[in-house]
Design a protein around this nucleic acid. Structure first.
Lengths: 226, 226
DNA sequence: CTGGATCCCTCACGATACTG
DNA sequence: CAGTATCGTGAGGGATCCAG
């Protein structure tokens, strides 16, 4: 189980040796939302072979990114959870998700849309600075999957399940990406049937201002200016 | 050349399909510092097979992360440079480098320390908020490799080569990591011979406050709280 | 000399089956 | 349920060769 290295004395190379193998980042993505069992991870990552999941978990446990924990229950349930070190990847994962979301096309026939990525997508696209004075709650229904998002003045909490007190219920028939990029306005989304809502249409306008996929670059650090 | 996918409709998965293959991130790391020729990239990544470099460049060109450009010269020199989209990975790469630097041990016998990673390491460890009122210049000598860093009130510019007007010259005999993490103080580093300087020792103290590898976590977004 | 392409070998990945 | 074992395939690694 000797990890392949890059032969470089470099923080980036080291990071990639820890979490750069195929599937590792997606495992971490799912664990960011809480400890999970082996089977939970398989469910969230339908295409990962069990043997690969097993070896990734072992590798990342050895390197201190996550840990195995035996729950104090009769059935001795085992969960995997991020260590503090591993959990510090959260911002990086969110930014990477936002960067990648910009080139998400339409979902392919084979693509799965999991609960965890639905929840994560709300965190990645959340614009805290636009939510300073916002206090609003949404329930989102992606087919059978239901999550809710509570916006409370710059803070966001997303979780699974319904939220009967929600200010707005959004039922999406397809990908919300065009709405989040601004390619489609709230109005257009409603009229075209991209989404259906229960509640005040003005709240959908608010939703698009709180959750957004920027098409223009954020100001760069200025390394690659030419 | 059909790219392996993860079969997920998710920004993180999409990002990994674009830049998650082995070596891709390190290619981008080097290109963050400016356009480079095929041979320059090979020099900075000694262990990458030419065939892999070639296919990564082609893949990332197809996906819009970088572009080939033919310089208007007689020899028709070709350079590779990041697109605007690719360049937006800069913050992510810097943060990933900082995260990985925390588990950098001592450089292995086989490890190379390239000019680009030396320059990048200064960007990754730079603390702009600690440099608000700082105006100072450093020359760093890692064996035969020489770079200089200009700190100008929260802004940093690092480049290759000597800088005769530098306020402080730092000659490192070994890895600077212990100094940057605070494991070794500026005083101890001098007395132990970890570094030798030309200039005011007080500037070395300043250096350690400007460039730092935090051992404690930065505040997390609060996803993985349990 | 740069910018690759081609060959071959090895090992990680991926699918399936199996066990405590 | 929670993984490990087996095994074929294809990507990575290294050397060599070729075109502009």
């Amino acid at each position: 189980m000797t990890v392949r290295t890059y032969g470089q004395f470099c923080g980036v190379a080291r990071a990639l040796e820890l979490v750069g193998e195929r599937w590792s980042m997606l495992i971490i993505r799912d664990l960011l939302l809480g400890p999970k069992r082996f089977t939970d991870l398989r469910t969230g990552l339908p295409r990962i072979p069990a043997s690969i999941l097993s070896s990734r978990l072992n590798d990342m446990e050895s390197s201190g990114v996550l840990r195995r924990r035996v729950l104090p229950q009769l059935d001795a349930a085992v969960v995997y959870e991020l260590t503090e070190y591993g959990a510090e990847l959260d911002q990086i994962l969110l930014q990477l998700g936002l960067w990648g979301a910009r080139s998400l096309g339409v979902p392919g026939q084979q693509d799965v849309f999991t609960l965890d990525s639905a929840i994560l997508s709300l965190y990645t696209t959340f614009r805290a600075e636009a939510a300073r004075n916002a206090h609003v709650s949404f329930e989102l229904r992606y087919g059978p999957m239901v999550v809710h998002a509570l916006v409370d003045g710059g803070a966001l909490k997303v979780a699974e399940g319904s939220y009967p007190a929600a200010d707005l219920v959004i039922c999406s028939q397809a990908s919300l990406v065009p709405l989040l990029t601004g390619e489609v306005s709230a109005d257009q989304a409603l009229r075209s049937g991209l989404v259906a809502i229960e509640g005040d249409p003005a709240h959908l306008e608010l939703f698009t201002s709180l959750f957004h996929i920027p098409s223009a670059p954020k100001p760069s650090v200025g390394l690659a200016v030419h």
